[in-house]
């Protein structure tokens, strides 16, 4: 009885602690968003008056427009490439011979373990040798290297629960190999594909250190935010941060919502 009581008390303490930790995780972002709506020329909390002044400032600024444009363009090129290449690799690992599969899988996701600073340093050197350092020809493959492992993991997980006999059924009914994959397998593993695409987009959009090495004149959004932040902490940085937060939070919501919905309808009963 005494144990029962102390166990319940212990759980209650854990619960309170957990709430504090969650607050620690969420509160800074909430405060940031509130501060971005200040109408003053300085940051304070709570702001004395509210307005959209800094959003207007940011959206009309050529610097922010250019860097956001570059980041979006980059993420929009990286995402489909990452999805295509990563899905191919996930299929190979799923369908290939079982001997050496584990070693190959480890190799395929190993860019995740390598610190990005080391990866960025190496890629920078190669790009310098090839004279492509400040171009898309360097940015895109560099970003792909860190996004593809995520696609391999998410699509690979979906493929693992996929019943291959459905693909074989389509083929025995006359579908080509490609057709059976395109019309049967891919729609069923859609949750994995969506997750892989969203991870790719967010990681590319948020990537800092590798691009920091490669870029001399080009500015992606994280680079522009970094240099602004190093210079001065102005309300505009809070507004840009909130906008970025809205993009990634929106995509995260899609990831959770779509992943769940598609995951439920994807199960064939």
């Amino acid at each position: 009885m005494e144990n029962e009581y102390s166990s319940r008390l212990g759980y209650r303490l854990l619960l309170i602690f957990t709430c504090l930790v969650i607050t620690f995780l969420i509160a800074p972002l909430a405060i940031l968003v509130v501060q971005s709506f200040t109408a003053e020329s300085y940051l304070s909390f709570p702001p004395p008056s509210y307005g959209m002044r800094w959003y207007a400032d940011v959206l009309n600024s050529a610097d922010w427009q250019d860097s956001a444009g570059l980041s979006l363009l980059l993420a929009c090129i990286v995402t489909p490439c990452s999805l295509a290449i990563g899905t191919m690799a996930a299929f190979a690992l799923n369908r290939g011979p079982s001997r050496g599969r584990r070693a190959m899988y480890a190799l395929m996701i190993s860019p995740m373990v390598l610190p990005h600073i080391v990866l960025g340093l190496g890629i920078f050197r190669i790009a310098l040798e090839l004279n492509i350092s400040d171009t898309m020809i360097a940015f895109v493959p560099a970003h792909l290297t860190i996004t593809i492992p995520f696609v391999i993991i998410t699509v690979g997980a979906s493929l693992q629960s996929f019943d291959i006999s459905m693909e074989e059924a389509a083929q025995s009914l006359g579908a080509s190999k490609f057709g059976s994959v395109w019309y049967v397998t891919l729609p069923i593993i859609r949750p994995g594909l969506i997750a892989g695409a969203i991870f790719s987009f967010i990681i590319s959009f948020d990537e800092f250190i590798i691009t920091f090495f490669l870029a001399t004149y080009s500015r992606t959004l994280p680079l522009e935010m970094f240099s602004t932040l190093m210079f001065q902490v102005k309300p505009s940085i809070a507004a840009v941060s909130s906008l970025t937060l809205a993009v990634t939070a929106g995509l995260t919501a899609i990831l959770m919502f779509r992943g769940q919905v598609a995951g439920e309808s994807g199960v064939i009963k």
């Binding site: 800074p28 405060i31 948020d206 994280p222 935010m225 970094f226 941060s241 990634t248 995509l251």
Partner: peptide
């Protein structure tokens, strides 16, 4: 899934 730089900005403001 939220940008690292955004989270750092939040802490600078605090």
């Amino acid at each position: 899934l939220t940008s690292i730089i955004v989270r750092n900005v939040a802490w600078v403001l605090i």
